[in-house]
Design a protein around this nucleic acid. Structure first.
Lengths: 250, 250
DNA sequence: TGAATAGTGTCTATAAGACAATATCCC
DNA sequence: GGGATATTGTCTTATAGACACTATTCA
């Protein structure tokens, strides 16, 4: 409950006494498709950097939280709702946008690939599913390339290659101790599929025996009692993520 | 190199077409003093929330990067320069500041305690060294209390208890795989002092044998060839951090 | 039957926890 | 010497990597 003095102060406050930056959110939407991580890019149809590719983004409204703004951008620009979405980092170099001072709060989200492909298909030639190519190992960090379907690096707007790098670094860091890996898989999956997800995210090969033991001992999986069907070999048992108290927000 | 079309667009751009939030930086300055982590708080002398305690902060200038703004705040409000400083998280709930929409980019910094105490002493009764009291274990996260010298919880402004919690969580997370622990110690230290730092940051006791082996095997320490002097027991060997390629920014 | 992957069992190497024994300082 | 912490060494346990072997499906 504000005091009388505080209320008087607020009534007299002049919000426009200092120049203010614009604040945007940009969303790195990540999905797993086959043997690579992919993301949704939007072609810029306006200046500045017209024709370049960027992550879907938009201005933060004056009465809207940052999380809400990121969810709204995802809903409006990709038709995607209700997915895992987490703040990444805030990019605020003074010259990152030539129009005016723009500070961007970057988010990343995890979806299944069907949703990503559907979003790109419905929006036409100004949207594209691009593939990450990470030029560094482990969690060293740094800019990341985004490739088109032919493996050619796309021309990316602003500092969005840095944003992509931050997203990959975060995803790698959270893989071991949060359930982010499951968000890239269908509800039921085999242990080998889960291992492939970890390998693709980390960019390394993993020991099969050790991965299997670790996962089964970790108490994060439960068996479905069913197995794969129609595969060219002995079918593997299907598991699903065990709903426990452990959170995505490690 | 912007194109002619881009330059024409930029000249015509009206930067004031949408209402903009204010953007501030707030800095959680952390030092180790005896058996606890402490931080510098500033008493608010103006509305809103006059009389409450907050982390030192200030508005981001229109031509200044976020990192530069955080360093400037630290320099101007605490007389501290050249320390480890890293972006934490951006807080943007619409109602977090009753004046107007204020989005705060939080930073944390690590200093030795002498610098923290000197800053508080030079600035008088409107600055205070407060102690963190963390009500959760591990990296679960959540708001953190700030105590005065008598152990009483201070009245903290805005969402700064959440900012404090985010700083502690980040520090705990980075302790194992970055050199942040060294930033809280003098240049030369014993293995037991290093262990105490880890225990205080993590809020748990650690196994001495295992900690010692792990540190000596980790290649991050080098021996100074000297030992403690004037202690009440067998003097321990002194070590210093080995300057390698490994970075604070894990 | 052969190709392919699933799943089990065992051996070894490494790291962590426990603890005993000895070392070195100050009082 | 007594008190306190440092340092070394050994034993046990848990986990990871390696690898052999069996199981089950489809073509």
């Amino acid at each position: 409950m504000p005091s009388t003095a505080e209320l008087a102060y607020l009534a007299a406050y002049d919000a426009s006494q200092f120049p203010r930056p614009s604040v945007t959110v940009d969303v790195v939407l990540i999905a797993l498709d086959g043997d690579a991580l992919r993301t949704l890019l939007v072609r810029r149809t306006e200046q500045p950097q017209k024709g370049r590719w960027s992550f879907p983004g938009g201005f933060v409204r004056i009465d809207e939280s940052l999380d809400d703004a990121a969810a709204r951008v995802l809903r409006d620009k990709a038709g995607i709702d209700g997915v895992f979405l987490e703040q990444l980092y805030t990019f605020g170099a003074p010259e990152r946008d030539p129009r005016t001072r723009v500070i961007s709060v970057a988010y990343y989200g995890l979806v299944d690939h069907a949703a990503l492909a559907a979003a790109a298909a419905s929006l036409g030639e100004h949207d594209r599913v691009a593939t990450f190519r990470v030029p560094w190992e482990g969690e060293r960090g740094g800019p990341v390339d985004l490739l088109d379907a032919h493996g050619k690096a796309l021309s990316v707007a602003f500092d969005h290659r840095d944003i992509a790098g931050t997203a990959i670094k975060r995803l790698r860091g959270k893989l071991a101790y949060t359930p982010v890996g499951f968000a890239l898989l269908p509800r039921e999956f085999t242990l080998l599929q889960l291992q492939r997800v970890h390998e693709i995210v980390l960019g390394t090969r993993l020991n099969k025996d050790s991965f299997r033991r670790r996962m089964l001992a970790s108490d994060t999986l439960e068996t479905t009692g069913t197995a794969q069907e129609g595969v060219d070999h002995r079918p593997a048992a299907l598991y699903r993520r065990r709903e426990t108290g452990d959170s995505f927000h490690g």
